[in-house]
């Protein structure tokens, strides 16, 4: 994926994996089942409002807590095309890359972009454009190794293609 374009769902600091996908749903591993309960404990209406391509913007330490890969899987399967945050918790960061969910760290964008804004992200340059306010931000680009994994849409494809 070269870029993402969609409307913004905005959340605060320390959004943990227990609210992204509560443990009571972890008896399933189906992406669609997980997506149906995505963000349920922090934003009950998320699932009914999200449309394909939408973008999540959050504060610091997004995805903290459990190592459940079910969390990025649920977000991706719900249709989200990219998560922008001030910082990500490290296991979530790995998992997002490994399953091919694009994520971008950018403190300024995380602070200034508002709920409902229309945002465009160019993954090659890392440039984030808030089309509603007209402001542009420089997100942190991935090291080439991680970029390759994301380009392959995840670690599994990367390993399959690179032996």
């Amino acid at each position: 994926m070269k870029n993402a374009n969609g409307s913004v769902f905005k959340y605060g600091d320390n959004v943990d994996t227990d609210v992204i996908i509560p443990a009571r749903y972890l008896n399933s591993t189906e992406a669609a089942d997980l997506a149906a309960h995505c963000m349920e404990d922090i934003d009950k209406t998320f699932v009914s409002r999200v449309s394909a391509g939408d973008i999540m913007v959050a504060g610091k330490n997004f995805g903290c807590g459990s190592s459940r890969e079910h969390a990025p899987i649920a977000i991706k399967a719900a249709g989200v095309s990219c998560v922008i945050a001030e910082t990500f918790a490290r296991i979530f960061y790995r998992n997002a890359i490994n399953i091919g969910l694009p994520i971008v760290e950018c403190p300024e964008a995380a602070a200034e972009i508002n709920e409902g804004d229309r945002v465009n992200i160019d993954f090659d340059s890392g440039i984030i454009t808030d089309e509603t306010t007209g402001k542009k931000y420089q997100g942190q680009a991935f090291p080439p190794f991680m970029q390759k994994i994301i380009d392959c849409e995840g670690l599994v494809n990367y390993i399959n293609q690179n032996g």
């Binding site: 459940r68 890969e69 790995r94 490994n98 399953i99 670690l155 599994v156």
Partner: peptide
């Protein structure tokens, strides 16, 4: 250290 399921698989 903790990782996700894809790292575990790899």
């Amino acid at each position: 250290t903790g990782v996700g399921s894809t790292d575990m698989a790899a």
